[in-house]
Amino acid sequence: MAGASLLTLLDDISVILDDVSVMTKVAAKKTAGVLGDDLALNAEQVTGVKANRELPVVWAVAKGSFVNKLILVPAALIISAIYPPLVTFLLMCGGLFLVYEGAEKVIHRFWPHALPHDEEQNARRQANADETVDLVAFEKNKIKGAIRTDFILSAEIIVIALGSTASATLLERSLVLSILAIAITIGIYGLVAGIVKIDDAGLHLMEQEGNFKQKLGKVMFAAAPKLMKFLSIAGTLAMFLVGGGILVHGIGFLDHGVEDIAHLTGIFESVTTAILNGVIGFIIGAVIVGIFTIVGKMRDDDTKSATH
């Protein structure tokens, strides 16, 4: 009797694991687009860091990402069980943050005089140029920013994965989210670590014997800065695509409007949707940046008036 019960239990466990495996694959496919954005954004976050500090920074952000998942997975399960609309609201807040960050970067790049002087960025450049300066304090701010961005992208990934397991039991959903959270964190930050060390790997190959190794090393070394520049641009675009997508899906009339316009483009529907999400994301982000800039200037004027 005990043996039969054990076999039944093992059979139930096997069925659950099979279901979890299938649901994890489905969830991974549905989150693939966001994972690409996550990779681009996180690789872009380590630009400007000295070569010997790149891996420590990536490791620090990866640890923060694990903590994010440790918070987000149980929180998503609890919120979805108690009050599902709150998940959408929190995602909308995250979308606003992403488009704001993206718009601020674009405006600083193309219209630097439109925003207040970025003293922190200048200080970081001076510190990078000075070998005697300890960059830990500067890195901490960069790491905090990267972890905040990771939190928002991780939240979206987990919510999308949660939606793909709507018909599953609580145990199955918990296992799917946990497996996916661990796998994407290891995968994303493993790739980021590899990307930021391409130039070092190229230098190593250039120093080796053999014509092929040296040529490959030269190609890798020359490609590294171009790849980082591309990822920097892609990371900023991802902020608008992901953030804009979250906001569009959360605002009914925008969602329907984008769908209607994209549907008119036929086979390019998905591309049109992404472009419209990105444009809307930039517009909303620019408006938020403008509001914060005006409020900041008003506060500065009030402070100056109070001191005179």
Rank of each mutant, 00 (worst) to 15 (best):
G3H: 05
L6E: 14
L7K: 13
T8S: 09
S14A: 11
S14E: 12
V15H: 09
I16S: 14
L17D: 09
D19E: 13
D19K: 06
M23A: 07
A28T: 10
K30Y: 10
A32W: 11
G33L: 08
L35I: 12
G36Q: 00
L39Q: 00
A40P: 02
Q45E: 11
T47E: 09
V49G: 09
V49D: 13
K50S: 07
A51H: 11
N52S: 10
N52W: 09
L55A: 06
P56Q: 04
V58D: 02
W59L: 15
V61P: 05
G64F: 03
V67T: 04
K69L: 10
L70I: 11
I71R: 03
I71N: 08
A75Q: 14
L77Y: 12
S80F: 06
A81N: 14
A81G: 12
I82V: 07
Y83H: 04
L86E: 09
F89K: 11
C93A: 12
C93R: 04
L98E: 02
Y100I: 08
Y100P: 05
E101P: 13
E101I: 11
H108Q: 11
R109C: 06
R109K: 15
F110E: 14
W111R: 05
L115R: 01
Q121Y: 09
N122G: 15
A127K: 06
A127C: 05
E131W: 12
T132H: 06
T132L: 09
V133A: 14
A137V: 08
A137T: 14
A137K: 05
K142C: 04
I143F: 00
K144C: 06
K144M: 06
G145C: 07
A146G: 03
R148H: 12
I152Q: 03
A168Y: 10
T169D: 09
L170R: 06
R173A: 09
L175K: 04
V176N: 08
V176Y: 04
V176F: 04
I186V: 07
L191K: 00
A193F: 05
L205Q: 03
G210F: 09
N211T: 10
L216W: 11
G217M: 03
F221D: 10
K226P: 04
L227D: 00
K229W: 14
I233T: 15
I233W: 12
G235C: 04
T236P: 14
T236F: 15
F240H: 01
V242D: 01
V242R: 00
G244S: 00
I246F: 01
I246S: 02
L247K: 00
L247G: 01
D255A: 04
H256R: 06
H256C: 10
I261Q: 01
A262T: 02
V271G: 11
L276I: 07
N277A: 06
V279W: 01
I283F: 02
I284G: 01
A286H: 10
V287Q: 02
I288R: 00
I288Y: 00
F292G: 06
V295M: 08
M298E: 10
M298R: 13
D302T: 14
D302Y: 07
D302E: 14
T303C: 07
S305R: 11
S305D: 15
A306L: 12
T307Y: 13
T307R: 07
